[in-house]
């Protein structure tokens, strides 16, 4: 043991040097990555109040991931570059003692991070989406999936469109989709609104979205009602266009759909 102490002084200073160099490289990489991430639009423009909340959650998680990502990345890269040896191993060095408390400290930090993301943006995001309270919708739209099209009923307007090619919605109204299926499992997804809920035969599922931007499929392909759950041959093309209009225009649309159905 005596000889070990004397010999350890040399390695100890080089350990400190490597640690310092690593920390500097990590901080630099983190700064660079923060700059890149904060300048990146991860999500395409949204079209609903919910989209803003979900995209914000995404952005927050991306920023939070940066220091973790760079820590491991720089750790791997630094080791590979600095600690590589060209030839086969000669005599192996005496083992270094494992520094005490590193594992415990690591677990404390990662636990704190994990609990943090559970709360925010996990639970806070769900709260912001209004999932913990009973918000009243302004409009109820019933959607029934079948292989491979959507049947849409606008509640309170007496309008049902079988095998709909278009879903029309008013702007700034909280819309509740009540969803089911005639045959197999489908999934209602409107990418622009960041809303998705499965259409399950035998039960009704619900999801809310509040469109806040006028738009249509022709201008933005994310304005589409898309089946997101594998449902057979026609799955990829099980879509309907989505159009968001002002309330007055929406009322006109409903009237003309009603007239069409009456004829």
């Amino acid at each position: 043991m005596r000889t070990n102490e004397g010999a350890a002084r040399g390695p100890a200073t080089s350990v400190r040097r490597h640690t310092l160099a690593f920390v500097v490289a990590w901080l630099a990489a983190t700064a660079l990555a923060f700059w890149i991430v904060s300048g990146t639009e991860f999500n395409p423009p949204g079209g609903s109040a919910e989209a803003a909340i979900i995209d914000e959650a995404f952005r927050f998680l991306a920023l939070l991931a940066v220091p973790v990502f760079t820590f491991v990345l720089v750790g791997l890269a630094y080791s590979v570059v600095v600690f590589r040896r060209s030839g086969p191993p000669g005599d192996d060095p005496r083992p270094l003692p494992e520094p005490r408390g590193v594992a415990l400290g690591w677990i404390v930090v990662t636990s704190a991070l994990a609990i943090f993301v559970i709360v925010n943006p996990g639970l806070t995001g769900m709260a912001a989406l209004g999932w913990f309270e009973d918000r009243r919708p302004d409009l109820v739209v019933r959607v029934e999936g079948q292989q491979w099209s959507w049947n849409i009923t606008y509640d309170g307007y007496g309008v049902t469109v079988p095998k709909a090619t278009e879903l029309v919605l008013p702007r700034d109204r909280r819309v509740r989709f009540i969803v089911t299926s005639k045959d197999v499992i489908h999934s209602l997804w409107i990418p622009a609104f960041r809303v998705k809920i499965d259409a399950v035969p035998g039960i009704e599922t619900t999801a809310d979205a509040t469109p806040n931007r006028l738009g249509s499929f022709d201008a933005d392909p994310l304005y589409r009602l898309q089946c997101a759950e594998l449902c057979g041959t026609g799955h990829a093309r099980m879509t309907a266009r989505v159009r968001v209009v002002e309330q007055a225009e929406f009322e006109r649309q409903m009237a003309s759909l009603r007239a069409e159905a009456g004829r």
């Binding site: 490597h18 791997l76 030839g87 060095p93 990662t110």
Partner: peptide, 18 residues
Amino acid sequence: GVIFLSALGTLWLGRLWL
């Protein structure tokens, strides 16, 4: 995360034969 700690700690200050 502990698995990652184990991997990084093993590489750190090792003599890597790549």
